[in-house]
Design a protein around this nucleic acid. Sequence first.
DNA 1: CTCCCGATAT
DNA 2: ATATCAGGAG
Length: 211
Amino acid sequence: MNRKQRATEIYARLARRYPEPKPALHWSTPWELLVATALSAQCTDERVNKVTPVFFERWPSIADAANADVAEIEEVVRSTGFFRNKAKNLKAAATRIMEIYGGEVPKTMAELITLGGVARKTASIVLSNAFGVNEGIAVDTHVKRLAFRMGLTTKTDPVQIEKDLMPLFAREQWGEINHFLVFFGRETCPARKPQCESCELNDICPKKGIE
DNA sequence: CTCCCGATAT
DNA sequence: ATATCAGGAG
């Protein structure tokens, strides 16, 4: 079984396991998803979901966030880690959306990554989940680990991994494959102690039983 | 490459 | 004590 065939099989099996893919992050607007995803850097979704309700009650609109006091944002997002960067970036992003994009979260990769604290991973999540647009495959810590373990890439740089993955899946599947690998990674194939014995992909996994 | 950084599991 | 968690920027 070659790389392409393995990718096709992985998609098919995980699509069966996750019939309705939606993010574990709580959100109701593109801006809320952008904030939640930005806060999720090196932090669990569970933790982010405790912080975002406080954030959006304090600053309901993008304009509110743009006018917020950075020190106050730092307090609210502190528990997610990297809180100084995240607070500064969110205010800057909100300000830029108000000043440059007319108060609407932009809908292209090129525009999104001009926002502070937003790179390809966060942009891809917002595009696919909030706008139904697939311009890239979000490569986060789970996708990185799973793509390597399942033999879909040998690279370590997220940008290179994304280039390896894109030709393996139809564009309409790019948002889903991210979701599948993230959830499968959490539930069955975590960084520590992967459950190879009970894994439904163990028959096609090159790294089965390793590490 | 380094730095940013708190919360939780092991 | 250490590894890991839906990364991004200098």
